[in-house]
């Protein structure tokens, strides 16, 4: 998709430049912004290195674990389908804590592990459970305490006032997390997306596959004569 967007931008720019007679401006901006891109990128390195250093210290010192303990009590409310002592719980809490601290690189392995653990509670092979949907909703709307890349980009253009966006980001991510959780909860009950309805529909279409590695105690019983059409 990025291919089409990029080609679209460039081609439209040339056509519009021809129509409005601003081709010299178009030409100049190729060189100007290519230089700007490198200036910004080089200016970015220092700030980025600093924050990554700080994040490594957070990671190694066990701050993530501390934070994941702090959010543990609300986890059981957000994930009613996941047993309290299931290994997915600490993995998800770690993923969320790492997301909040902005430790992107460290967050991914936690997230993948949490997703795998949640999959053992999924009676189907290819339909996302409520818990999986909720985990990703929280992940994509996560509260961000330190938006490192944005800070670095701003500082590369102008140092003064680069950090003034921290509080606004914390407020707006808090709002988006609440909206994300609420929407997941409400949409998960709609006719179109309700778990039972999706299962029923896939059984009718013959596209439902059972998860061979399911470890929960509420497996789906397929109707007699069900034939799976998926290769």
């Amino acid at each position: 998709m990025m291919n089409y967007i990029w080609v679209g931008l460039v081609v439209i720019a040339v056509i519009a430049g021809a129509v409005t007679g601003t081709m010299d401006g178009v030409l100049n901006n190729i060189f100007d912004f290519a230089n700007t891109a490198v200036e910004i990128s080089l200016g970015l390195i220092g700030t980025m290195a600093f924050f990554c250093g700080l994040m490594k210290v957070m990671e190694v010192s066990g701050l993530c674990e501390k934070m994941s303990k702090a959010i543990a009590p609300i986890m059981t409310k957000l994930f009613p389908d996941v047993p309290k002592d299931h290994p997915a719980m600490p993995a998800m809490a770690l993923w969320m804590a790492a997301n909040m601290l902005g430790i992107g690189n460290a967050a991914t392995p936690f997230g993948l592990k949490a997703m795998q653990d949640l999959q053992t509670l999924n009676p189907t092979k290819s339909i996302a459970t409520n818990a999986q949907c909720m985990m990703l909703a929280i992940g994509t709307t996560s509260v961000t305490l330190l938006p490192a890349t944005v800070l670095a980009l701003r500082a590369a253009v102008q140092t003064e006032g680069a950090a003034e966006i921290i509080v606004p980001v914390i407020i707006s991510t808090s709002i988006s997390t609440i909206v994300g959780i609420t929407c997941t909860w409400i949409l998960g009950k709609t006719k179109r997306w309700k778990w039972e309805n999706v299962i029923e529909r896939e059984i009718a279409q013959g596209t439902l596959e059972l998860n061979d590695n399911y470890l929960g105690d509420d497996p789906i019983v397929l109707p007699e004569g069900y034939v799976c059409k998926v290769e």
């Binding site: 092979k125 339909i127 949907c133 994509t140 929407c183 949409l187």
Partner: peptide, 14 residues
């Protein structure tokens, strides 16, 4: 990463 292809409402909520 876990082979889930029907993401249900997660895109809409996101």
């Amino acid at each position: 990463s876990v082979g889930v292809s029907n993401a249900r409402h997660s895109i809409a909520a996101g």
